[in-house]
Amino acid sequence: MTGAPLLELDKLSTHYVSAQGSRVVRAVDEVTLSIHAGETLGIVGESGSGKSTLALTILRVLPPAARIVSGRMMFEGEDLVTKSDEEMRHVRGKRIAMILQDPMASLNPLFTIGDQVSEPIRVHEGESRAKAWTRARELLKAVRIPSPETRLTQYPHEMSGGMRQRIVGAIGIACEPRLLIADEPTTSLDLTIQAQYLKLLGDLQKAHGLALIFITHNLGIVAKMCDQLAVMYAGRVVESGPVSQIFNRPAHPYTRALLNSIPVMGDPDKRLTAIDGQPPDMSTMPPGCSFAPRCTSVMPRCREAEPPPFVVGEGRISRCWLAEPATGGAELRVAGGVA
């Protein structure tokens, strides 16, 4: 991928601070990533690894206790961290949109589908109600909802989960954003609907030249959908790079463990390997590498010093001492992340 990235995160950190300021949770810790137009970036990690906080950080829709403490988010040449709330509001839904994971809860039960789908068009483009509704009908058609005309006047409870999630998707693309962030959009859908929905997202991406950030814990989906992958553990990106390379030759022990824990169909002899232990308590992080307590290749120095991001190939980094180049161990940082 050539040219400047669409979105470039540079050592971005978001912390949750308790009311007394005594407990600090580094939910997103020095994350460096980038994504180009038309590309799909998968972000995987266990629950609580900071994936969703990262997504909410990009849109700056964080809960009151969370603060972006450092870093930059360059989007189309502008730093989103320094934008005012009002400027940010014009980015949300218009240039960057997001799909939430729970289709049953993310639509307002008291307003019609037409109202909710046309809302961003009316707010961001100042369209009249009638025009916005016409476009909403087109959007429902685009996400393959049958008889969109009647659906527009219906309420969320009159629809199935799969249909609602497609409507949330329609809201996402309503103003033709440049970047769409999908936070586990298929977790609560059943398998056949999941496949349909993923195909739909892929089609929309092609049709609109969207960049897509796909947050999931399903590595199968990553293999199918994504070009780039970032693996998160305890708030950090521990490995990132092109999906095919990471799947073939994972550099970080955590990525390896994740890949080994995927069940393989038709191979009854292969036992599933679980990762022993629990993710660390994010408010009292151990010194050194946060994965060290669970790592099978742990070395003494892992418990002392935190590994920096080492370049392990073209556009690939790994935060692991094993990836340290043999030549003197010089710390090599990458400016452009996974690009």
């Binding site: 849109l59 829709v61 509001r89 014009h90 980015v91 949300r92 839904g93 218009k94 949109a97 997001m98 939430l100 729970d102 809860a105 993310s106 639509l107 307002n108 039960p109 008291l110 307003f111 809302e119 961003p120 707010v123 961001h124 949330v168 809201i171």
Partner: peptide, 26 residues
């Protein structure tokens, strides 16, 4: 604190509209 208010924020609606329309009625 609900998901649909989060979505309303993500849509880029003005705060006044989120409070007066989406939250208040519920």
């Amino acid at each position: 604190g609900s998901e649909y208010i989060k979505l309303a924020r993500l849509k880029g609606l003005p705060q006044s509209m989120i409070i007066a329309k989406h939250a208040f009625k519920n």
